[in-house]
Amino acid sequence: MRTVSILTGRNLRLFFRDRAGVFFSLLSALILIALYALFLGNLQVDNLTERFPNAETGDIHWFVNAWVFAGITMITTLTTALAALAVFVDDRASGRFGDFLVSPIRRVELILGYLLSSFLISLAMTLVILVFGQVYLLTQGDSIMTASEAGETLGYVALSSLAFAALSSFVVTFLRSSGAFAALSTVVGTVIGFLAGAYIPVGTLPDAIVNGINALPFAQSAMLIREPMTVQALTALAGDTGPAVDAVKTFYGISAKVGDFDVTASFAAGVMVAVFVVFAALGARQLARRIR
């Protein structure tokens, strides 16, 4: 394990030394913040004002802010997990694998070093975004998550970081250059906001597209994270239970259905575990084949 710790530390240092890389790993989150600050936020506020004409304006803004930062939090778990594996792509492109193989380092230790550093970077960067979001809510006079809600959110964030680190480790094994990695990162950073229902609520889309999105792990990860992050604001807006609460949850991706099947929190968590197990195995196999 000492070798794995050394390799993980080396990958962490290389990632955080590249300030531009760190910035671009958060670019999708920053773009989403800018979009909602400029105009998308007002669209959601106007929409909710029409639906709940008797609601307090402050409660509407509270819900929108909480929902937006929940989406940003989910996006960050994926984009930063992928960005962390730029080290792997650079090592492969530069031929450093040859240096590793002539040293007393086993392939499994190299693989664990990349996977663990990807997970840790994703978790750390997402926690920064999560704390920033809570501080922003405080500055707006809104309540932040309770200890139990924060603990639940952290659990889902860790699970998502694990799953997306494994998924990313599998995807990058097919890349041979830094240019290809940069192109992939750009595409993922652009598309993931739509797949997670973060740019626009899924309720605005046709049912067929909603079913397709909700069947993906990205929307299910977002659903898990949104629940504890928006529960207080949603209660203030629409109450604890009732048709109005259910409608808002469905429209904003806080709950999900695929056809007539209700995607429960336990089912979504199981999907994330399955993503981790399957892609960790596939990624490890591919990494072992590429490290030569």
Rank of each mutant, 00 (worst) to 15 (best):
S178V: 10
A182N: 13
A180W: 03
F181S: 01
G155A: 10
G193H: 01
T173A: 04
G203A: 12
I200E: 05
G155I: 05
L167V: 13
F164G: 00
L195N: 00
T204M: 13
G203N: 10
E149R: 14
V187G: 10
V188A: 03
F170I: 01
F181G: 04
G179F: 04
V157E: 10
G151M: 15
A198L: 03
R176L: 09
G189E: 05
A158E: 02
A147F: 15
S148N: 13
T153S: 15
L154S: 09
V191R: 04
S161Y: 06
A183F: 01
F174H: 07
I200M: 14
F194L: 15
T186Y: 14
F170H: 02
A158Y: 05
A166S: 12
S169E: 00
G197F: 02
T146P: 10
S169I: 01
G151L: 15
A147S: 14
L175Y: 12
E149K: 12
T190Y: 07
V157M: 06
A180K: 02
I192E: 06
T153W: 05
L162N: 09
V191N: 08
A180S: 14
A196S: 15
F164W: 09
L167W: 02
V171Y: 07
V188W: 08
A182C: 06
A165P: 11
S185W: 01
V188C: 06
L159V: 07
V188I: 15
